[in-house]
């Protein structure tokens, strides 16, 4: 179960950072920076901007390590959420001017077979099954927003749908997802 090992490893290293252990933050960075940089790249699609986001996120991770509570969330997800938020903040500050007609955008994440790449962890399998049960447009909107950081307006432009419809679909999709995962 590599996922479990990864999680334990990350949790232990975050504890180390919190306790001021020498080198703990560097080890955490070495073990997770490629995954975390990939998360920022999917949103910003620009290496310089993604590096800025990861830089900001690592400073936040160092400062918040004492608040990390593994009983309230998995370590890898905690790290990923901090990086996503840093990337989203940057995308918003840039007016989300990231190109949405980028041919590579979406192909990697939105195609139904891409969901097969979700890890084999139980939570991932459940989420995949619940996403698969949504209408295609609802699923696509949710994945585009989470993975690529698209705004409602960008999703509406990409799906060629009215903005209000997209907002309502995403809201309904999220409510269905919650019910399915409950």
């Amino acid at each position: 179960m590599p996922d479990t090992n990864l999680a334990l490893d990350a949790a232990g290293l975050i504890r180390g950072v919190a306790a001021g252990e020498a080198g703990a933050l560097r080890r955490l960075y070495d073990a997770h920076s490629s995954r975390l940089f990939g998360i920022a790249m999917a949103i910003l699609r620009d290496r310089d901007a993604a590096a800025d986001a990861l830089h900001d996120a690592v400073l936040k991770i160092a400062g918040r390590a004492v608040q990390f509570d593994p009983l309230r969330g998995e370590a890898g997800a905690w790290l990923g959420a901090i990086v996503r938020n840093a990337a989203l903040d940057l995308a918003r500050a840039r007016g989300r001017e990231t190109p949405i007609d980028d041919p590579s955008l979406g192909d990697t994440a939105v195609a139904p077979e891409a969901l097969e790449r979700l890890a084999e962890a139980q939570e991932s399998v459940r989420l995949r099954d619940c996403l698969a049960a949504l209408e295609a447009n609802n699923r696509e909107g949710i994945v585009l927003a989470f993975v690529h950081g698209l705004s409602h307006a960008q999703i509406a432009a990409r799906l060629e749908m009215p903005l209000g419809t997209v907002k309502a679909w995403i809201r309904r999709g999220l409510a269905r997802l919650k019910g399915c995962l409950a």
Partner: peptide
């Protein structure tokens, strides 16, 4: 959170 696994 598992959706973050879709980023390469």
């Amino acid at each position: 959170a598992p959706l973050a696994g879709l980023s390469l």
